[in-house]
Amino acid sequence: MPFDLRPLTLPESERPARRDARAVAFWLLGVAGLVWMMVAIGGATRLTGSGLSIMEWAPLSGALPPLTEAEWQRLYDLYRTIPQYALVNQGFGLEGFKEIFWLEWIHRQWGRLIGLAYAAGLAWFWLRGRIPSGYKPRLLLLLALGGLQGGVGWYMVASGFEADRTAVAPYRLVIHLGLALVIYGALLWTALGLLRPERDAPDTARPVRAAVRVTFWAVVAAMLAGGFVAGTRAGFTWNTFPLMDGALVPSGLLSLDPWWRNLTANLMTVQFNHRVLATLAGLAALAAVALAVRRLPSGHARRAVLGLGAAVALQYGLGVATLLWVVPVSLGTLHQATAVLVLTAGLVALHALRPARRAP
């Protein structure tokens, strides 16, 4: 992303603190990269139906995969008790079970890796006294959120074992995805603050900042709406664009009663909402780019807004392709991973456009 990592010219007395800040920032960026990969792995897990293959919550012992045929058979027999096996995968055998098991095991193992990388890094910087002043509470909060995410993940998976389900509950999926994005965003924003503490956007940036904010929140809303698309598998229907069921605004969007159930339970409405929010994000990004070209001088802030526009355009194109090709695993996973790229670009742009602090 377009943020400047060149060393600053600082007085000798300030250089150790600046080195510590940069070191902590790079550690946080590394953990954020692991979270980004986790989101992509989670997308692949969902698209392949692998998420329900491990039916036990074992944060420590689960780090080891099955080591004997007896253990494989035990886990397979356990999986055969849930509706997903009976209605989707019946008869696919132990070898078929192993295929979906390994992806979910990698997903959970990656979560353990993130926790270890964060906890070990935090302990190392803390014990060496290298955490910048004022950042300890925030870093502890991020540790707590990471632990909470593990519990939310199991809360989501457990919903798929209910008698009438072959996948996890959409609401729980969105909560799990949303918390992952919050953690990622907090890691990135904290790292950006350590790398670029200056707030020096010019006064001419005010309308650009407003357009970027609209873009950012439209992107967040589209991502959460995409979670409901994923959770209900609404992307496997109405695979045309820009028309949907032969119209720009199809009939049947409010067919459920009460009306608010349509927002999360009506597959047509769920997909339509995602389309509309993604389009709004695209239009807002276009406006932000136009304003940046007119009002911002060449430099970091302008590049950041142009990067946001490019990321939104790429994601929009991927979304259309994913829909038209009826959500292949490769494109669906790439679409989910690129959503984090858009979130990254939005946060970088917002950070670059922070107004200068006014003197009292």
Rank of each mutant, 00 (worst) to 15 (best):
I82C: 02
G299V: 05
L334W: 03
T166P: 03
R295W: 06
R108T: 02
E104C: 11
A292K: 09
A287R: 14
A163G: 04
Y171C: 01
A221S: 02
A359Y: 02
A218Y: 04
P360K: 10
A339M: 07
E162F: 03
W57E: 09
V249P: 12
A221Q: 06
W126P: 05
T338K: 06
T338I: 09
N266Q: 08
A265M: 04
A40T: 04
D200Q: 10
S50Y: 10
V220K: 02
M156Q: 08
P197T: 01
P355N: 03
G134N: 12
L64Q: 07
G129Y: 14
A23D: 10
L60M: 11
A230M: 04
G111C: 09
R165S: 05
W72N: 09
L64R: 11
V174W: 12
Y171I: 06
S251N: 11
A158L: 13
D245H: 14
L60V: 15
L256P: 12
V327F: 04
L179S: 02
D200P: 00
E14M: 10
D257P: 05
G91M: 13
A310C: 08
V312K: 00
L323Q: 06
P66L: 08
P258Q: 03
R358M: 10
A167T: 06
A359I: 07
A210T: 02
R294C: 13
T215E: 01
L94I: 15
R275C: 13
D203G: 03
L148V: 15
L224G: 01
L324W: 00
M223K: 05
L145I: 10
H274Y: 07
Q73D: 13
G30T: 06
L103M: 13
T279Q: 00
F241Y: 15
A120V: 06
V35I: 11
S13E: 15
F228S: 00
D4S: 10
L75H: 09
L8Q: 13
A44R: 07
T9F: 02
L324N: 02
L267W: 10
A285D: 04
P197W: 12
G235H: 11
Q315V: 14
A311Q: 11
L47Y: 07
A218D: 04
G91V: 12
A58G: 02
K98G: 01
L291M: 04
A221D: 04
I175D: 00
L314P: 07
L148S: 07
W110H: 14
L353S: 03
L243K: 03
E12H: 11
W124I: 01
H176C: 07
L286R: 04
L139R: 08
L324R: 05
R199G: 03
L286E: 01
A356R: 13
S61L: 12
V157D: 06
A17F: 01
L343C: 06
T204Q: 05
F26T: 00
L141A: 15
F236T: 07
G129K: 11
G129N: 11
R46A: 04
A218F: 09
Y118P: 09
G96L: 13
L127H: 12
I114Q: 14
P83T: 09
M38A: 08
L140A: 15
E12T: 10
Q109L: 15
G193D: 11
L60C: 01
R357I: 02
R112L: 05
T68P: 00
W126F: 15
A287W: 12
R354G: 05
L192W: 09
L142K: 08
L188Y: 06
I82H: 01
A304S: 14
